[in-house]
């Protein structure tokens, strides 16, 4: 443990998340993965959007960027493309990533830019106190779904894979050890990697839907998931309606920044140390 404390801005703790909120567990898992990989703190950038999950970077001792709702991946694209040598991690929530941020999510995946995205999915908008989100299961309650959510959810992992992500995994705050391994895999993968972490919101989701507190929610998460490796050998009725957890898709493909660097290498005309811009204006549109 003490080896992970050095990755935290300890003077900023305790954090703002409610007692029993899973975001702390997911953040801890990510940090443990970073500690295992001994990443250089000066070369890690953590970017987030808006929402409970997006407060995470404020507690982490890296270059951290808390951006606008849904736009973390677009900001992160700018950082990564400008400085491909930095390890860029996006920490986002189910609403931040799949609702307002959905367009940036599918395009970052399509580009296969080397960004690791941790989606802390607690099935609700927590910061604004309990509205349903694109990941709130059908029929469940939210302050804006008082009669039960009539909408269907995304399968975030299938969405990521279909959009072009080249590493997709789903973990949970219950299976904390596995989550560390999945984060580690995602961080070492060169290309767009997504880890959807199912996590508990006792204050709103648990209470509003009468599932219970943190522990009951963790049990609820455990019961609605099945390990993808186990599912392969289990009879269908054992896995019906369950979410697969573990590494779900891995298919390394050329990475966006690498491909762009190849373009630069081809195109680079020596401009004898010219600092930006075209040396002779008359030759620029030949």
């Amino acid at each position: 443990m003490s080896d992970i404390l050095k990755y935290f801005r300890q003077d900023r703790l305790p954090h703002i998340w409610c007692p029993g909120c899973g975001h702390g567990t997911v953040t801890g898992a990510l940090v443990r993965a970073i500690a295992r990989l001994k990443l250089d703190k000066n070369k890690v950038c953590v970017v987030s959007g808006i929402g409970c999950s997006s407060r995470a970077p404020g507690y982490l001792d890296f270059d951290t960027l808390h951006t606008a709702h849904g736009r973390a991946l677009a900001f992160a694209t700018g950082i990564k493309l400008a400085r491909p040598d930095l390890k860029v991690i996006v920490m986002t929530g189910d609403g931040d990533c799949t609702a307002i941020g959905g367009n940036h999510f599918i395009h970052a995946a399509r580009r296969n830019i080397d960004i690791t995205t941790i989606v802390m999915n607690n099935n609700i908008y927590g910061m604004t106190s309990g509205q349903y989100s694109p990941m709130t299961p059908k029929g469940f309650l939210g302050t804006t779904a008082p009669y039960g959510n009539v909408e269907r959810t995304f399968d975030l992992c299938k969405l990521a894979e279909a959009a072009g992500a080249t590493y997709v995994a789903r973990g949970t705050a219950y299976h904390a050890q596995m989550l560390v391994d999945l984060c580690e895999q995602a961080l070492t993968h060169r290309g767009f990697s997504v880890v959807e972490a199912l996590t508990q919101c006792p204050t709103y989701f648990g209470r509003k839907n009468k599932v219970g507190g943190a522990v009951e929610l963790l049990e609820w998460i455990k019961d609605r998931t099945v390990n993808s490796k186990a599912a392969a050998v289990l009879p269908p009725e054992k896995t019906a309606g369950k979410l697969l957890i573990g590494e779900l898709y891995k298919n390394p493909q050329p990475e966006f920044c690498d491909e762009y660097d190849k373009v630069i290498a081809q195109v680079q005309r020596k401009f004898d140390g010219f600092r930006g811009g075209v040396r002779g204006c008359e030759q620029n549109s030949d």
Partner: peptide
């Protein structure tokens, strides 16, 4: 066309919201 010549980076984002977000990210580096 010109940025690669000077080692710069160009990206066509998915929309203008992504565009300004990306340049802010780049400026931060």
């Amino acid at each position: 066309e010109e940025l690669p010549k000077v080692g710069g980076k160009f990206v066509q984002m998915e929309d203008e919201i992504g565009s300004i977000a990306a340049i802010i990210g780049a400026s931060l580096t």
